[in-house]
Design a protein around this nucleic acid. Structure first.
Length: 340
DNA sequence: GCTGGTTGTGGATAGTTATC
DNA sequence: GATAACTATCCACAACCAGC
């Protein structure tokens, strides 16, 4: 049988074979150096590392995938415009890179078909695990994919899931803390500004926050009142304006996320509503914009850094063979600023 | 025991051979 | 000639083995 020729592009690529030849060692020796494996002398290591640098060699992810690990992690995010998520991903990425993993990001754009195709691409590209921050993806879909690849989900409450892990801020407690913070400032007329959840399951963070808010109000002997914005974020500007001009406007409002709390604060100030004298506002996420002195939004801090780091570490332990599901809740706290 | 080499393996695919 | 079946190759790694 004739030996067929490989294409020129692949011939140009520097492989472990070239490194081995240049260093005057076996392919297995190079592999051991790459993996920091047992049984490598300092002399051999130096020879191999010198050749790797000289030839500018990078291991083939495809070939590694055939043997098990590619050392790549897929990160699926709902969007890039959410500053809180950016903080979470940055911390997760730092935890992963400490273990020589690289992460590649996909954007789901809140569309289940896009999210599903992203996860499938990550599986097809033989990534070693997937970190998902797509809050609306269903538990059933996650179960299906978790049989094919280790998965850790952030911002998705599914405490009984068996095949994948979850890491969340304790959203119920966070909302409860927000109510307590308003009560401490003497407020009794405290409403919650949420959005139309359209029969969302309890896995959705906003549902958890609503529950926490209602519990907090009930505990204080008060009746909770939830005002709903349109489900699509782009349609909320006029709804926020209506809320500010409403004769039934409360004295204090807990907003389900800084994504709506910051625009509300801005709209209040530009329309002459004094904050906090006329309207006290508490947000959720403690996102970077809320900390800007001119904004000064009191907000529930989810500890994005700890959330991301925990998720990254949990994914690594999943990849290393852990099979029991873990569901972690990160303790929230209220960051007090001038809006209350 | 330490070090380093040999061999087999994985999935996809191009190339070769056999069969109709 | 068309199609099916088989083989070699890509690349990195793990298990196993041999020499010291």
């Amino acid at each position: 049988m004739m030996k067929h020729q490989s294409v020129s592009a692949s011939q140009d690529r520097i492989t472990i074979r070239h490194v081995a030849k240049d260093a005057g060692v076996s392919i297995a020796a190079v592999s051991k150096v790459l993996r920091n494996a047992y049984g490598v002398s300092e002399v051999l290591r130096n020879k191999v590392e010198t050749s790797i640098e000289k030839l500018n060699y990078r291991p083939s992810v495809a070939a590694r995938g055939m043997r098990g690990r590619t050392y790549t992690i897929g990160v699926l995010v709902i969007e890039l415009s959410n500053p809180f998520l950016a903080g979470v991903i940055e911390s997760a990425n730092a935890a992963l890179s400490e273990s020589n993993y690289k992460s590649l990001i996909g954007i789901g754009r809140s569309a289940s078909s896009i999210e599903a195709s992203m996860i499938e691409s990550m599986i097809d590209n033989r990534m070693d695990g997937v970190l998902i921050t797509a809050p609306r993806i269903s538990g059933k879909v996650l179960e299906r994919y978790a049989r094919q690849i280790p998965i850790v989900v952030i911002a998705h409450h599914e405490p009984h899931a068996q095949t994948y892990d979850t890491v969340n801020s304790d959203d119920r407690k966070g909302a409860h803390l927000a109510v307590e913070a308003a009560l401490r400032q003497g407020h009794r007329d405290i409403a919650m500004l949420s959005y139309d959840l359209l029969d969302s399951p309890p896995s959705v963070v906003a549902v958890q926050r609503e529950t926490g808010y209602l519990e907090g109000m009930k505990q204080a002997g008060l009746e909770g009142k939830i005002i709903r914005l349109p489900p699509v974020a782009a349609d909320r500007r006029s709804a926020i304006k209506n809320f500010l001009t409403s004769q039934y406007r409360p004295r204090a409002v807990f907003v389900w996320s800084d994504l709506d709390a910051v625009p509300l604060l801005n709209a209040a100030r530009t329309s002459g509503v004094r904050v906090p004298e006329d309207l006290a506002i508490i947000g959720y996420d403690n996102s970077p914009p809320s900390a800007i002195p001119l904004v000064g939004l009191t907000s529930v801090d989810q500890n994005a850094a700890q959330l991301g780091r925990t998720a990254g570490e949990m994914l690594l332990s999943r990849i290393d063979g852990r099979e029991n599901a873990q569901h972690v809740l990160i303790e929230p706290r209220v960051e007090m600023r001038g809006s209350v």
